[in-house]
């Protein structure tokens, strides 16, 4: 397996949200518009990359019996630093994100990656895997946020795409997208699409295999 695939695999085929069912919590509540979602994604990518790298560096020093506490401390430190940086350089966004940056601590992707990957792989690979998982998570977050912002406000990153009625345009905003329920529906539909896609490709590879085995005269 080449190094690049550590980075790309978690984006679609092994996406932490839709395939591994991790990290559904936190963060998805701030997908009403794209800008906060982008900042949040960046924070998650940084925390994942950092914690993966540091934990992997320390993996031979950490005794097994207290590893959970140490892992939580390292992750929490990374989150606190990220939170303070956002508060300093983007105070407006920090007000929108409220408690959700802090909640990255309990995001199961971070601890899951620490437990399953960083403990057994070298720092470089752990960094790549962390970044890849972060990007996969961001992919879903940004997709949901874009849909909600276009349909709900007619804008993308505050630039007008569909001119709304209140500003003399033709588009009536769909207020449903402002409700948290819309996030559930959009994620549900995305998961449906991805699962159907992977089911189809599985079927194709299975039938390919069957053809090969038939050619060899071996029946299942």
């Amino acid at each position: 397996m080449n190094y690049f695939s550590y980075l790309t695999k978690p984006i679609i085929t092994n996406n932490p949200i839709t395939v591994q069912i991790l990290g559904l919590c936190s963060a998805l509540a701030i997908t009403q518009s794209l800008l906060p979602a982008l900042i949040m994604s960046l924070a998650v990518i940084v925390v994942l990359g950092f914690s993966g790298f540091v934990l992997s560096l320390l993996r031979q020093l950490i005794p097994n019996s207290i590893r959970l506490i140490l892992e939580m401390t390292i992750i929490a430190s990374a989150v606190i630093v990220t939170d303070e940086i956002i508060k300093t350089f983007a105070p407006d966004i920090s007000r929108i994100l409220t408690v959700f940056v802090g909640l990255i601590v309990t995001n199961c992707i971070v601890l899951g990656q620490a437990e399953t990957f960083a403990r057994t792989h070298s720092p470089g690979l752990s960094l790549l895997d962390g970044l890849g998982n972060g990007i996969g998570y961001s992919f879903i977050l940004i997709l949901v946020a874009t849909v909600r912002e276009i349909i709900g406000q007619g804008t993308v990153l505050n630039k007008i795409i569909l001119p709304t009625l209140s500003e003399g345009g033709w588009y009536l905003e769909n207020k449903f997208m402002a409700l948290p329920a819309s996030a559930f529906f959009i994620i549900g539909l995305i998961i449906w699409a991805i699962q159907s896609y992977s089911l189809n490709s599985n079927k194709q590879s299975n039938s390919n295999k069957q053809r090969e085995s038939n050619q060899q005269g071996v029946s299942n």
């Binding site: 069912i21 409700l179 996030a183 559930f184 529906f185 994620i187 549900g188 998961i191 699962q195 159907s196």
Partner: peptide
């Protein structure tokens, strides 16, 4: 239930309706 929708996908859509009701 359609094959791709089973499990997680449907779980989210059902939760969406619940969330609407609470709203």
């Amino acid at each position: 239930i359609p094959l791709g929708l089973q499990g997680l996908g449907l779980a989210f859509i059902v939760t969406g309706f619940l969330s609407l009701a609470f709203n």
